[in-house]
Structure formats: C-alpha cells, structure tokens
Design a protein around this nucleic acid. Sequence first.
RNA 1: GCCCGGGUGGCGAAAUCGGCAGACGCAAAGGACUUAAAAUCCUUUUUCCGGAAACGGGAGUGUGGGUUCAAGUCCCACCCCGGGCACCA
Length: 810
Amino acid sequence: MPEKPYDHIAIELKWHERWQNADFYKAEENSSKPKFYVLEMLPYPSGTLHIGHIRNYSIGDALARYKWMRGFNVLHPMGWDAFGLPAENAAIANKVPPRQWTLQNIAAMKKTHRRFAFSYDWDREVSTCEPEYYRWNQWFFLQMLERGLAYRKRALVNWCPKCATVLANEQVVDGCCWRHEDTPVEQRALDQWFLKITAYADQLLDDMAQLEGGWPDRVLTMQRNWIGRSEGTEVDFRLEGTGEPIRVFTTRVDTIYGATCVILAPEHPLNETLLDADLKVRAKAMVDSRAGRDPGDIDKEGIFTGHYAINPYNGERVPIWIANFVLMGYGTGAIMAVPAHDERDFEFCTKYGIPIRPVIRPADLPSGESVALPYSEYGIVENSGEWSGLPSAEARRKMSAFAEQQGFGKPAITFRIKDWGISRQRYWGTPIPVIHCPACGVVPVPEDQLPVVLPDRIEITGAGRSPLENVPEFVNVACPKCGEPARRETDTMDTFMDSSWYFYRYCDPHNSERPFDSAKIAYWFEIDQYIGGIEHAILHLIYSRFFTKMMRDIGLISNNEPARRLFTQGMVIAEGAKMSKSKGNVVGADMLADKFGADTARMFVLSNVPPEKEVDWREAGAEGTYRFLGRVYRFVTRNVPLEERSGDADRKVLRKLHQTLKKITEDFETRWHFNTCIASIMELVNLLYAEEQNISAAAMPQILETLALMLAPFAPYLSQEIWETLGGEGPVFRRAWPEFDPELAKEDEAEIVVQVNGKVRSKITAPFGTPKESLESQALADEKVQSFIGGKQIVKVITVPDKLVNIVVK
RNA sequence: GCCCGGGUGGCGAAAUCGGCAGACGCAAAGGACUUAAAAUCCUUUUUCCGGAAACGGGAGUGUGGGUUCAAGUCCCACCCCGGGCACCA
C-alpha cells in the first residue's frame, strides 16, 4: 500500500470519539491479578493544564499502561484539589462565585485530560470541594479533637498580608509567603486550631527507614531536616535571689562547667519580671528588628539583665543576658552559653567580654598543648569536677542522668517541627466543625450533623477576616449541648488537610457512611508508585504521612506509610526560562494537542532527559518528536500488506527489535529513563528504514506488531491506529507486553576490542565463549596490532572474555 | 556554615557493573525529489595534525594529583553551578 501521511488530528479525533464511553481503565474490585496503585498528585483546578502537568501525567500514564500490559489490576485515579485561595481571588476580580469558577475549571481541565487519553478511572474522581468529600475532613478533625490531637490555642502565627490569612510554618519560605515570594510574613497573635503533628515527630523520622530505596534520598533528607530531632538535656539554672528555675536546653551538657552566662530569647516570658521598663522596650525592639530577616545578616546583639543565675552542677554564679540569636520557638527559649565550645556563643561572648573557659580537650591532643577555640567537637571533659576525664558522649549520658536524679533537669529530645496550624481566615475551604458557646465553650459539631456545609451565597471582600462571619444563617446556631444561642467557628481548614488523605478516598469514593471501607484500603494500599513535583517534599508529603499514622492509630487502616515508592519529576521550563503567568510563556496543553497532537506532546516530555531532571520545552524539539511519529506511521502504512522481499536483514532487524524490547522492559522495571527508551525505538526505526527492502513479508508483521506494543505506553493514539492497521482487535494497551527473547537479542559473534597499552588499535570478532588463549593469539596476530607491538617487549596481556584484549608492551 | 545533586560536542544529552567517549534528538551544512518552496529521503558534523582521497595519528568528559593493564565512571584536594537546611543551642 502507498504510505499515508501522518494526520495526527484525524487519528486522535477518531480514537477520542471511539474511546468516549470506553471503560478500559476501570480498576477491578475483585481481582485475582496482582494489584498496582499508581498515582499522580492531584492538580489544583486553575483552569488549564500546562506542559508541566502533561509531564507528570505522561510518566504515570506510561507506567499504568505498562502495568496493565503486564497483567496487573491497576488503580489509576485522578481528582481535584479544589479548595483554595485562587478561587476567592477570581471571585473578587470577576464577580464569579468560587464554586462556579472552580467547577468550570474542572470541566475544562477534564476535557483536556481526555484529549490526552490519560488512563484514569474517572468513576473514582474526587473533588475536595464537594460536601461528600470534605465532610470527612470534618470527621477526621473531630476524631483528632476527641483524642487531643487537635487543639486550640492563642499563638503567634504567620500572617501573609496578601493572602489575608494565616500560614503554616511549612508555607513560609525564607520569611516570606510561599505564594508571594516578595511578601514578608508578619507575626500575629490569634486563636488558632492546631494539629499535633509533633506527637508523631519520632515516628515520622523513624519510619523513614521503611522508605529508603523507595523514596528519593533528597526528599528523605529534606524531611529529616524539617523534623530536626536533637537529643540533649534540659537543665534548670536558678535565678539568684528568688531561686526561680530557668530551664535551658543543651545538646552538650558535657560542657556545662564552661557555661559563662545564661541567655534568654528577647520574648522569653521571664523577661516580664526580670526587665525594667526601659529594658523591655529594648527587648521588644530586638524582636521587631529580627522579623523577616535572613539570620545570616543579623549581627549578634545582647543586653545584660542585671540578674544572675546559679549553675546547678557547680554552684557557679553567671550573668543572665537576653540576645537576638536565641529563639523562643526552639527548645526552652533559653540557653547556657559555652563560648569555648560553641561558635555562636564564642562570637557573642567575645563581643561582650564574657569569660571563655575551655572544658573539653581533643582526645589526641598532646598534654601541655591547648586547642584553638572555639572547639565544638567531642573530646575529653576537663576542669569539670568529678566528671573530668570522661569522654564527651559518656559525660553527656551520665550528667543527664545526674540532673534527673537530683531533680534539676532531665534528658530531653527537641524537634524543630512544630504543630500544624490549620485555621484559615478564608471562605473557600472546609468549615471547621465546632461551635463556640458562651456557656459551654468550644463544642464539637455532633457527627450526625456533618457535613457543615459552606454557604453558597456570600460576599467575598478579601479583608482580613473570614467572609463567613458575615453570613448570619451560617454563624448563628444553637449550642448542641445546652441549646442556647451560640456561634459557629468561621475559620476554614488549610487545604493541605484535603490533600492529606485524598488517595484513600479513591479506593472507595462514593461511600456515604464512612470515609472509606477499611477492607478496600487493605487491598489497595500502600500506593505502589506516587509521582509528583519535588516542591511537595515537605508540605504535602509530610502531612500525608502524618495523616496515615493518625488514621492507623484510630483503627481505620493498617499500613504505616501512604506510599511505598515516590518519584519526583523535574520541572518543565519553556525555551530556557521558567514558565510563569506573568511572563506569559506558559505552554498550554490544548495548544500542544492542536499543534502537534497529544502523542507528540506526551512523548516529547519523556524524550531527551530522564524524567527526574528539568526539561526544556523547545518547539524545535517537539517537531523532532512529531517527525519521528510520522516516520513510524508512514513506514507502517506502506508496508501493510507487504509483497515478498528477500529477508536478508530479518535476523539483524529482529535482533535489534528484541534488544530494544529488552532495554524498555528493564527500564520500566528499574530506573525509568524513558529518554533512552525512546532513543532506542528511534534507532530501531532508523534501522527499519535502512533495511526496508530486505525484510521478508513473514517477519514484517511481527516487527510492526511489537513496535505498536512498545509504543503503547508512550503514544496511545498512534499505537492504537497502527494496531488497527495491522488488523489487531481491541485496545492495544490491553494486550500482553511482548516478552523479549534473549536468544534473538544476542549478537551472532562477539566483537572484541583490541588495545595496546590501553588504546584501541583494532577489533576482531570471535564466537561467544571463545577461550582467552585463542582470543589472545588472534589479537596478537592482527595486522594493525602487529604494527604497534613490533620490536617491543610484551609485558602482559589482559583478556576479558567476549569483550576485550589489552596488550601491554614496553 | 552544614547536607544533597551536578559539571561530557554549537545545544539537550547517552555511556546501567572500571573496558570502543559522544547513542538518540535538535541545530547547521551538502545532496536527491520538485518549475519552486514546504514536506520527505540520503549524507556529513568533538577537535587538532598529515593526506587529493580512502585513511592514519595526537588530544579530549570543570582543574590538579593519585590508584589501575584500562578512569567520564574509583580515591584525594580544589573551582564552578543547582537544590535543601540554617544563629535549631
């Protein structure tokens, strides 16, 4: 047959229509097949999919299709992280209600999803802004409230003036808002709801051992740093005069004989009684000048309080200072300064003339010599009374135990991670299900009254209080306990709450009795492969690990961790620049589908670089991918059916075919370097072009069929079209993945590189398994080799069977 | 400052276990087809030296050293780029 031009529009439209109501992508509930849960992070429904989304989904889709072809029962769902601020901002800007705006966006994006033929089980679609979903957010909140894992407290919280709401610590980046990188976050004192993620700090840290190998090290390191566990000792110094304890936290209690002052954070509560009016003003100024600044640029400053503290170990009297480098939010907000063995203390005490007294010496330091200060390593304790002579580690242990015995301290563990503040003073989120009653206090909404539904009619102003406060029918409510008039909580939940457990809901998305049926979770969990952006390394991924542990502890699930494997794909940049709305260089998915076709776009984002690396969108590059798909299509159409030809190249082409298949199969099972997979398919096609006239009519259909199957995970439309052209029936991505034949993939003869002194001088061929001696003599006899070794002495010959002979001469 | 990545042609990159550096793609140049262009197909393309050419030889994976018969790959030191954490006691 004459070849047909590659008309991507016609091909994709045709199959798009035929697949409209198809149900190939449904996960089976009762299946004898092994299960595989592949998940891509759910998008925020901003209105359009861009090429970054396409990359994320193309990776997951290739894997899902491959797993189906390998005979797995695949769960591959998609949903919408539908609550959040942009909907409110759009409402203010365009006078469209957030709900309407969100639903329109979802509809538009879903259409694009379908154009790209991503293999989702849309029956399981979850949208977090629907009461059927967020009622379970409320339910989880109540469960946590009951167990003391949710609590309310007045606290200094991060406030973004642009978002006009509170941010979690995880949402503050370099002192600025994560959504507004140029807006410094302010501190405000507000009554807020918190989730006690710190109760799980140890588990979150320890269970990372289970994730090693399955999660990128980078992500684990970031989480480890974020949790920031440190082991040390709490010690009470005593305020001279009153004897009031001043508790400090230290990781180096072994250096405590070298403590020459105690330093409090400027906002330490003790300052209230310690400082006079004048000093209080200066302390306040210290707090203010620190706000929003990079710690590296702040000079250490301190003020002597005029008071003294007593070191409980040696009874020594040391001055009490306040200083800007001591943080209220970490440890106890007070430290002992040991300038000889801590760089920061050294800098501070040097500046203010506070004595520096060494109490640790390096174990290998010759006696009589002294060490350069500050010396912050471990060593041998000296000048420390009865503890002198002990190594640091042992001294830490014994001195901590001593503190506990004597009742002036104890071993202690401090974490950097803080409880998760979830209150948001905004409308478009899950209402927090509590009622404030003047008589009964905070009263949880009874379970049978869930969901607390967000009212629809609302005016959104963007002012600094929840718009819900202005909706009397929402706010005014009878107290569930006493029946008297009360007020509903008007703050809504952080949207990260929604995304902390959505992947469980996919397993049982329509359950109206419970968040899900535990048996279904037991079947599908853990997620076999989770795929998303590195930007969620801390936020979403730590919250969802916390949720999993909480859900386990209330008896809903039995898995410890949500996802066995995590893959973080690289960003897509456009023509060398980071994509952003303001630059107007966002590459939209619909444009891609129009101009190049979904197959080209999908395949392009997997080409050229491994998926974990950043990829640069270049139009010329996409044209290259398009050219390749055209080459494939034209080759197939002109070779079906095929008149008889020699078949001289059959062996050669079949070998390449099976080598390609081997490579792709191995990559899917291990490292996912789809760029090299696609490159090897290109090599195969290049060979098909070169040998087109020498492939027999018997071999060709087998070759083309395998080619269609190999392309199925990457270019579903084209591979289906080819499949049909070849007379295949049904969806190509439900056929079995072709097994490669190691015999066919093998070369006939080994090519042996012959080196002289490590430089390649010649190549010989020999059957596989040729003995060393035979290879050596062949190599030595080689004409080219002779010219390099003639007249020289052969020192030795190294032979690697089937690979290489290296002749060393002098 | 600490902890991770990374540095290879004009460009994106490949080389998976220490064994032929530069697969594949882009861009560029030349050719075929065409009245012409586009599309398509074919060829060339790390660099220097010699040669009319086939070809031959040298150098070459951030820099300097080392291990080895053999190093992009392993070890040591340094430089640069990206990311994370950061007065965390």
